[in-house]
Every structure is written in structure tokens, then in C-alpha cells.
Amino acid sequence: MRRLYHALPGPPAAKVLQIIILVVVVLVGLGFLFEWAGQFLDNGGTMAVVSFLP
């Protein structure tokens, strides 16, 4: 984490802003990933949905 901080360009304030943006992007990405993967656990039980499972 410290290495990442030092690798970022710009003054300290810009580095903190970049880290915040990075964290938000990662969290949103994880949210999408978890939603997609959650369909394999439980997709709501609707019928007539083309099954992607064998």
C-alpha cells in the first residue's frame, strides 16, 4: 500500500484523491462481480430464464 502511494504521481493531496477513486472503482467492480456471481447462488426463482448452468 505504501509502495502504491509512493508510485502515484503528484502532490500528497492528489495521491490521496487517486487512492479514494481507486477504492471506489474497486468497490463498484466488486459489487458488479458479486451480483453476477450471486445469480449462481439464487437468481430469484423465476421461470423461462435461459439457464446458464448445465
Binding site: Q39, F40, L41, D42, N43, G44, G45, T46, L53
Partner: peptide, 14 residues
């Protein structure tokens, strides 16, 4: 009533 089956899988419908 329709739901996923078995629990923790969307393979079938109960």
C-alpha cells in the same frame, strides 16, 4: 410459487 432449488443453487426450481 417458484423458487431456486436446491438451497444455494439456481440449478433447479422448487
Amino acid at each position: 410459487l417458484t423458487t431456486c432449488n436446491p438451497k444455494y443453487s439456481a440449478r433447479e426450481r422448487l
